[in-house]
Simulated assay, not measured.
Amino acid sequence: MLNGFSSFSFLFLFLFLLQSLAGCSSSQQSVAPQAAEVGVASFHPNTPKLQPSFVNVYDEWKGTPYRLGGTTKRGIDCSAFVQIGYSSVYQTMLPRTTGELVKMGQMVSKKQAQYGDLVFFKTGYRLRHVGIYIGNDEFMHASTSKGVIVSRLDNPYWKQAFWQIRRISFN
């Protein structure tokens, strides 16, 4: 261990620092009104008992500020947050950009959404955003205005910007 980091954590952090691609295709100017955001995660009671779980990921990253292209606690963007979440929970490295993430897995309807599915939004003409569905119509993500938070799909802003949900299979 190096100052509280396991060798895996250190390697993982090192790999993120090497990546120079911007993750979300959004900018600081695309700050969205998020009046109905959830202050404390109200995770679905049927959340799978994975160790670690997305609850752990959220607890660790909650409040981390948004930074386009960021991959650290000093600032993170939406696709890096998704990549870190999936790496922590499923030990699987996903692509770094929202544009690449949206090509993964299979599209599912909102009614079929399950814990861990990726939720995509069109937040502008060419701007895209991604988060992780956690059940109960909620998703966690790196918000441009509030950093890592839990939001509701029925929030007027996110409802209007909703694009699709994709399920990543690990077969």
Rank of each mutant, 00 (worst) to 15 (best):
M1W: 11
N3E: 02
S7T: 12
F8Y: 15
S9V: 14
S9A: 15
F10M: 08
F10Q: 10
F10V: 11
F12V: 08
F12C: 02
L13T: 05
F14I: 12
F14R: 14
L15K: 04
L15N: 02
L15G: 09
F16E: 09
L18G: 07
S20T: 14
L21D: 15
G23E: 10
S26A: 05
S27R: 11
S27P: 10
Q28R: 15
Q28V: 13
V31A: 08
V31L: 09
Q34E: 12
A36T: 07
A36F: 08
G39M: 12
G39H: 14
V40W: 09
V40T: 12
V40F: 12
V40G: 03
A41M: 09
S42C: 04
H44Y: 01
P45A: 06
N46M: 12
N46Q: 13
T47C: 11
P48R: 08
L50Y: 12
F54R: 00
F54S: 01
F54D: 01
Y58R: 09
Y58M: 00
Y58G: 06
D59H: 14
E60Y: 11
E60W: 12
W61D: 04
W61V: 08
G63R: 01
G63N: 07
P65K: 11
P65N: 09
P65F: 02
P65Y: 08
Y66C: 10
Y66M: 02
R67Q: 14
R67G: 06
L68C: 07
G69T: 02
G70V: 01
T72R: 13
T72S: 15
I76M: 03
I76H: 02
C78D: 06
S79A: 03
S79N: 05
F81E: 00
F81C: 07
F81P: 09
F81I: 00
F81W: 06
V82G: 06
Q83A: 03
Q83E: 01
I84C: 03
S87Q: 13
S87A: 15
S87L: 10
S87H: 11
S87N: 12
V89F: 00
Q91D: 15
M93H: 12
L94S: 00
T98R: 05
T98W: 06
G99T: 03
G99I: 07
E100R: 03
V102H: 07
V102A: 05
V102E: 08
K103S: 10
M104C: 11
M104E: 13
M104Y: 04
G105Q: 10
Q106S: 14
M107N: 13
V108S: 04
V108P: 10
K110M: 04
K111Q: 11
K111N: 08
Q112C: 04
G116A: 07
L118W: 09
F120N: 02
F120I: 00
T123C: 01
Y125T: 13
Y125W: 15
Y125R: 15
R126Y: 12
L127W: 08
H129P: 01
G131V: 03
Y133F: 13
N136Y: 03
M140G: 00
M140S: 06
M140W: 03
M140D: 02
A142E: 00
T144W: 08
S145G: 09
S145L: 10
V148Q: 01
V150Y: 03
S151D: 04
R152G: 06
R152I: 10
L153M: 06
D154I: 09
N155E: 14
P156I: 09
F162G: 05
F162T: 10
W163P: 05
Q164F: 05
I165T: 04
I165M: 10
I165Q: 07
S169N: 14
N171T: 11
